[in-house]
């Protein structure tokens, strides 16, 4: 079976955006383009489970992805879990779609007897193991995030361990926002492994504003740019059906 490709944006933030367009709208647009947006809301204490965290849920819901609120200390396990869960969700969506074409509109997975359901899940598992994955990680580095950045760094290399234990290929890119002069700053272009992030996070100056919307937009643009470049070099690559499902 030919493995396709899954595209995700992973947003790590601790609160409300306060500059630029509505991030949920950008996420919805990304979803239309076949890019899933997952959001991890990093909690301080019980206190800030407020408006910012509502936004976290909204962005992920519009972006067709998974959201999770978590304390910084549990970040590692959550990051890899959310990424995998979103991947499975996307694959299930694709497989469901195919099934519905075969079985007719009305049939859902749960209408299948448990045996058949198991077989379908095995297909999803197989795909999850072999599919190629592109994750663009978007880290909020506004002032309040500063004490959490060592945990973020650890969680990201942990994610790299998890995903690189699969058979399929991975590509990671890392963006921070707000950037020095622009809304976002690219610190790591597409690379198969996340290593040596130590320096990146240490010499970081954390800013005051949180332009989540514009940051998502430049992440989206970065995906497009890659695709554009690719299609010039190599046209015949098999893309995953979800990408055509947009528009």
């Amino acid at each position: 079976m030919n493995a396709g490709k899954i595209k995700q944006i992973l947003l790590l933030t601790d609160g409300c955006s306060n500059q630029g367009e509505d991030p949920a709208a950008v996420a919805a647009f990304a979803n239309e383009k076949g890019i899933t947006v997952n959001v991890i809301g990093i909690l301080e204490h019980e206190s800030n489970r407020g408006k910012g965290m509502k936004e976290v849920e909204n962005i992920a819901a519009s972006g067709g992805g998974v959201s999770q609120l978590v304390y910084a200390s549990q970040l590692s396990q959550t990051v890899q879990m959310v990424t995998k869960q979103a991947m499975t969700q996307t694959l299930q969506g694709v497989v469901h779609g195919e099934l519905r074409q075969i079985l007719g509109e009305e049939r859902e997975m749960e209408d299948l007897p448990p045996d058949k359901r198991g077989e379908v899940m095995e297909v999803v598992d197989d795909l999850g193991e072999t599919v190629n994955l592109e994750v663009l990680i978007l880290v909020d580095t506004s002032a309040s995030m500063k004490p959490k950045l060592p945990m973020v760094q650890e969680a990201l290399s942990d994610l790299s361990i998890s995903l690189n234990s699969r058979t399929g290929n991975n590509n990671f890119a890392l963006f921070l926002f707000p950037g020095k002069r622009k809304d976002t700053e690219k610190v790591l272009d597409w690379t198969p492994k996340i290593n040596s992030l130590t320096d990146t996070f240490h010499r970081l100056t954390t800013g005051g504003v949180t332009p989540t919307g514009p940051a998502l937009k430049s992440a989206l643009y970065h995906f497009e740019k890659r695709r554009g470049k690719r299609s010039l070099i190599d046209d015949g690559e098999d893309e995953f059906p979800i990408e055509e499902s947009g528009f």
């Binding site: 590692s76 193991e129 942990d158 361990i161 998890s162 234990s165 699969r166 058979t167």
Partner: peptide, 24 residues
């Protein structure tokens, strides 16, 4: 065997301790 570990708990996971990957 040969795939990525499906489920783990950090304390018992060699990836968490930096002593290996999560290949089954």
């Amino acid at each position: 065997q040969g795939r990525a570990i499906k489920e783990y708990t950090e304390f018992y996971d060699r990836g968490y301790w930096g002593l290996g990957d999560r290949k089954a």
